[in-house]
C-alpha cells in the first residue's frame, strides 16, 4: 500500500516540483479524512496542488472560485420552478461533489463562507427546508492568499478550526525552479496527473490508519505539547480538544504513510505545524513573532521523553 502512496506522491510531484513534504502533508490530510487549507501567495501552485490531489484520487471534482458577490445559493444549489411539471426542482450546486476546490475562500462574504463551512462540518446541506446528504467522501481543499487582504473576510478561528491542516507551499528550491523554467508553463499540466489511488483505497487506508498504535509514552508527549500551548504565555490561548484530536489523527495517518503500525514522536512532529499553526494565536508576550516560529519553539521546548 505504501508503494501506491509513494506512487501518488511522485505523480503529484511531477506537477509540483520539489515539494514532497507539502504533498505528503496534503495527502495525509485527505487520508485522515480532513479538509485542507492551502495558504500562500498567488502563483505558488496552490490550485495546481489541489487539482493534482483531486485527480490522483480520481475523485469527482468541482472548483468554486470565491468572490465577494458569491451567494450561498451559488454553492449549495437552488430550486427553480419547472413549468412543464408545475413543481420546483432542485438544481444542485457545485458543492455536490466529492472534492471541492474552494479557491480564494477569504474573498467571499462570511455568509457564503459559513454555508461552505457548515457543509464541511455536517457532511450535508439544508436547502429550502430539505436536508440533502453530500457525496460519501467529501473533501474541501480551500486556498487563500494571506497577503493582499483588501476586500477580504479573514476566516474566524471557529472556522479555521474546521480544517484539519493548513499548509503553505513556499518558493521552490533553485533546482526545482530551474527545471520549471526549462519546462515552461503548461496551464493544463494538472490534467497530466494520472489516477493512482481509488475510492476503495481511500476507505481501506483510512481504516488501517485508524488502527495505528499510539503508545502511552507517545500520548504523554502529545499531552505535554498541548499543555505547553495552554500554559505558556506566548500563546494567547491553548489548543482545543478538537485540535488535540486532530494532532493524533494526523500523526496516525502519517505513521501509516511511513509504513509503520505505530506512531513515533517524529510523526507528531512532522504533522504538528500543519495541524496546529492555524489554531493558535500569538499571545501578548510574544508580540511580533509568527505562529510558525512559536510552533517551532513549542517543538524544541517540550521534551519528547519526559
Amino acid at each position: 500500500m505504501q508503494d501506491r502512496i509513494q506512487a501518488a506522491v511522485d505523480e503529484i510531484g511531477q506537477v509540483l516540483l520539489g515539494k514532497e513534504q507539502q504533498i505528503r502533508l496534503a495527502l495525509c490530510c485527505l487520508l485522515a479524512g480532513g479538509h485542507l487549507l492551502i495558504e500562500d501567495l498567488p502563483g505558488m501552485g496552490k490550485t495546481t496542488l489541489a487539482h493534482a490531489l483531486a485527480r490522483v484520487f480520481g475523485l469527482d471534482f468541482n472548483r468554486i472560485q470565491f468572490t465577494s458577490d458569491l451567494l450561498p445559493a451559488d454553492i449549495l444549489g437552488v430550486s427553480i420552478f419547472d413549468q412543464p411539471n408545475a413543481c420546483f426542482t432542485f438544481h444542485p450546486g457545485p458543492i455536490f461533489s466529492q472534492l471541492i476546490l474552494a479557491d480564494e475562500i477569504n474573498r467571499a462574504t462570511p455568509k457564503t463562507q459559513s454555508a461552505l463551512l457548515e457543509a464541511m462540518e455536517e457532511g450535508q446541506v439544508s436547502v429550502e427546508g430539505e436536508t440533502r446528504p453530500l457525496p460519501a467522501p467529501f473533501f474541501v481543499i480551500a486556498t487563500q492568499n494571506p497577503v493582499s487582504l483588501a476586500g477580504t473576510f479573514p476566516l474566524p478561528e471557529s472556522q479555521l478550526d474546521r480544517f484539519l491542516m493548513r499548509i503553505g507551499i513556499g518558493y521552490p528550491d533553485p533546482k526545482a525552479e530551474r527545471e520549471l523554467l526549462e519546462r515552461g508553463v503548461e496551464p493544463e499540466q494538472a490534467r497530466l496527473v494520472r489516477q493512482s489511488l481509488g475510492l476503495e483505497d481511500l476507505v481501506a487506508m483510512r481504516k488501517a490508519a485508524g488502527s495505528v498504535r499510539l503508545s502511552p509514552l507517545l500520548l504523554d508527549y502529545v499531552q505535554r505539547l498541548i499543555a505547553y500551548t495552554r500554559d505558556n504565555e506566548h500563546f494567547r490561548f491553548g489548543l482545543s480538544p478538537r485540535g488535540s484530536i486532530a494532532v493524533v489523527r494526523a500523526a496516525r495517518t502519517w505513521a501509516y504513510m511511513e509504513g509503520r503500525d505505530h506512531a513515533l514522536p517524529e510523526d507528531v512532529q512532522a504533522v504538528l505545524p500543519a495541524v496546529v499553526e492555524h489554531r493558535l494565536r500569538v499571545g501578548v508576550e510574544a508580540e511580533g513573532r509568527s505562529a510558525p516560529a512559536l510552533v517551532q519553539r513549542l517543538l524544541s521546548e517540550v521534551d519528547v521523553f519526559r
Binding site: 513515533l264 514522536p265 517524529e266 512532529q269 519528547v304
Partner: peptide, 9 residues
C-alpha cells in the same frame, strides 16, 4: 540530544 528530538531523529 535536543529536548524536542525524537529517537529516530
Amino acid at each position: 540530544r535536543h529536548r524536542g528530538e525524537g529517537p529516530r531523529d
